[in-house]
């Protein structure tokens, strides 16, 4: 994609996988600043795997990933940590720390990385939780709230430091349509108000058409990207029939 905007995530010749199996080969793509970028693909094709590599949890077999212009692959422990705290990640199950209340979960990055006073941190945590519609639940433990609420609390935590870049793994899976539509609105608002760049892995076709500026579609058989572009455009004009089918939701059942 030719684009004169600055890339915030840059993936070059990336080959990823686990121990013996290769999941994706020779991937090349960029996420531009201020964009809402969606990673699509059939179940088990390697979307989550790609995301885990992007955020530096796994080492790729080959290739490079640059975030904010710095390689997350070739950085040492400390540089990597420094890089990691500049972006937010929300996990499919929320990944909240079970021994801390929601407020403490959200406060944690603030306590560690800012010099704000206790009151300011508390205020900020409450604000973030209110943003995801969890006011009143600040003192609940993660085990006392529902799956969808955990996911939203995880989002509040990821946003605590107002990162310039957010990664989402399946943000709307397991949410009811209303909540998931609200989440889409929140995502759009984040981008509008804070200029956050957002990378999403999702199955939710409705939300793709609402929020996505650009999607890439991964394919399990060829282990590569089979389509890249604006979703409405791809839906009608992709030369690949499977991509059109997928986006028209005609022959693929999604989990």
């Amino acid at each position: 994609m030719k684009n004169n905007k600055k890339p915030i995530v840059e993936v070059r010749n990336l080959t990823i996988g686990y121990d013996r199996t290769t999941v994706m080969e020779e991937l090349n793509f960029c996420v531009h600043t201020g964009e809402i970028f969606v990673i699509l693909g059939g179940s088990g094709c390697g979307k989550s795997t790609l995301l885990k590599h992007l955020i530096g949890l796994y080492e790729p077999f080959r290739g490079d990933i640059k975030i904010f212009g710095e390689s997350i692959v070739r950085s040492d422990e400390d540089e990597k940590r420094e890089l990691m705290r500049q972006f937010g990640v929300t996990y499919q199950g929320g990944a909240l720390f079970g021994s801390l209340t929601l407020e403490e979960n959200v406060s944690l990055p603030l306590e560690e990385y800012t010099t704000l006073s206790k009151d300011e941190i508390k205020q900020r945590a409450y604000d973030k939780l209110a943003l995801v519609d969890l006011q009143g639940y600040e003192q609940y433990m993660p085990s006392e709230i529902s799956g969808g609420m955990k996911k939203r609390a995880g989002l509040a935590r990821a946003m605590a430091l107002d990162p310039k870049l957010l990664f989402f793994d399946e943000p709307s899976a397991g949410l009811d349509p209303i909540t998931s539509a609200e989440l889409d609105r929140l995502i759009l608002r984040l981008r509008k108000d804070l200029g956050t760049t957002i990378v999403i892995v999702t199955h939710e076709l409705d939300s793709i058409f609402t929020v996505a500026d650009r999607v890439i579609m991964l394919d399990k058989r060829t282990k590569s990207i089979i389509a890249e572009g604006e979703p409405h455009y791809l839906k009608k004009n992709s030369e690949n029939e499977w991509v059109r089918d997928f986006l028209n939701r005609s022959n693929l059942k999604q989990v």
């Binding site: 949890l57 940590r81 990691m84 705290r85 499919q92 199950g93 720390f97 079970g98 944690l108």
Partner: peptide, 14 residues
């Protein structure tokens, strides 16, 4: 199992 370790790491915590 809950990906809390991954979350810790990606928050830049050791």
């Amino acid at each position: 199992v809950n990906e809390e370790i991954s979350a810790l790491e990606t928050m830049g915590f050791s």
